[in-house]
């Protein structure tokens, strides 16, 4: 399922909303999560899962083609852990 398919499904269930409203809602939702992670916050959605960030240390990488060393800076990566009820649902 893609974002546009999700928008269509939600629009068909809520006839009073326009397609563009649903688009805005879904966009707001995911932007909110991104923004929270950017601030270093975590987002805990019961029944779904938790979004957090993890720190990746700086390291020396290598260009696989030429073998030249490349410095990779320290960075924050988004991380998702599924919730209990999600775990139960996909394992039933």
């Amino acid at each position: 399922m893609t974002k546009s398919e999700l928008i269509l499904k939600i629009t068909s269930k809520n006839s009073y909303l326009y397609h563009k409203d649903v688009y805005k809602i879904i966009d707001t939702l995911f932007n909110c999560v991104t923004q929270a992670l950017k601030n270093g916050d975590r987002v805990e959605l019961r029944g779904f899962g938790t979004f957090t960030t993890k720190l990746r240390n700086a390291r020396i990488g290598r260009n696989p083609k030429t073998g030249d060393p490349v410095a990779i800076p320290q960075k924050k990566m988004p991380f998702f852990k599924m919730g209990k009820s999600m775990k139960e649902r996909i394992n039933s």
């Binding site: 399922m1 999700l6 939600i10 809520n14 809602i25 939702l29 995911f30 779904f48 996909i90």
Partner: peptide, 21 residues
């Protein structure tokens, strides 16, 4: 409804792709 749609899609073994997320 959004959460439910994502969950049921995953439950059926289908990936959920949200562009820009």
């Amino acid at each position: 409804e959004i959460v439910e749609e994502i969950l049921s899609s995953l439950e059926n073994g289908n990936d959920v792709k949200i562009s820009n997320f």
